[in-house]
């Protein structure tokens, strides 16, 4: 087998591995990207850039079990970059779920849907880093240490961001929608 063939085979194997990862993990990563951005189209853009950067670094990602963490960190960094562009700061999330957005579960009761809406609105109003903390902590179910590592911040910052987020929920979600108050 010649060198050219050998390189081709390795490249093909690499692409096949990446394709397998893309197929298996894209829906889950898109969900995380959506929660991080609050916008379906922005989530796809962020995910596309992040996966492209993963592709470029694919040979360097030695621990395949940590690939999701790697992509999540790229996504967070991309979002931070996005939010620091002046034109992007002028955009505001809306209460209306645009076409193509995932829909809240239709089977939950009305008060829970109402609380979901209020809670989601407050989470979306958090600064990008704080939102990333709560998404990784309470959606991805990462520990404080894992969240800190993923975001490159201290455990203390993770704790304080979570505490502030919860305080915001307590203050801003109507009392009759607080957990445990459902009828």
């Amino acid at each position: 087998m010649g060198a050219v063939t050998g390189r081709g085979t390795r490249a093909e194997r690499r692409d096949a591995d990446f394709t397998d990862y893309l197929t298996a993990r894209q829906p889950a990563l898109l969900r995380t990207a959506y929660l991080l951005t609050g916008d379906r189209h922005q989530a796809e853009d962020i995910l596309q850039t992040s996966l492209a950067k993963l592709y470029l670094a694919w040979d360097k990602v030695a621990d395949r079990n940590a690939t999701d963490a790697y992509v999540r960190r790229i996504m967070v960094n991309e979002i931070n970059s996005l939010w620091r562009r002046p034109w992007k700061r002028r955009e505001h999330s809306t209460d209306v779920i645009p076409e193509g957005e995932p829909h809240p579960d239709a089977h939950v009761d009305a008060s829970r849907r109402e609380r979901d809406g209020a809670l989601w609105e407050i989470v979306q109003s958090l600064p990008p880093k704080a939102r990333a903390v709560v998404v990784l902590r309470y959606y991805e179910q990462m520990s404080e240490a894992e969240t800190a590592d993923a975001l490159g911040i201290s455990v203390g910052t993770v704790k304080s961001q979570c505490s502030r987020a919860i305080a915001a929920l307590r203050d801003r979600v109507p009392a009759d929608l607080h957990p445990g108050q459902e009828s």
Binding site: Y34, L35, P102, P104, D105, R115, V123, Y138, Y139, Q141
Partner: peptide, 12 residues
């Protein structure tokens, strides 16, 4: 929050 996030993206 965990429940809200789960429900928010369940169909995605």
């Amino acid at each position: 929050m965990s429940d809200t996030f789960d429900r928010r993206v369940r169909d995605l």
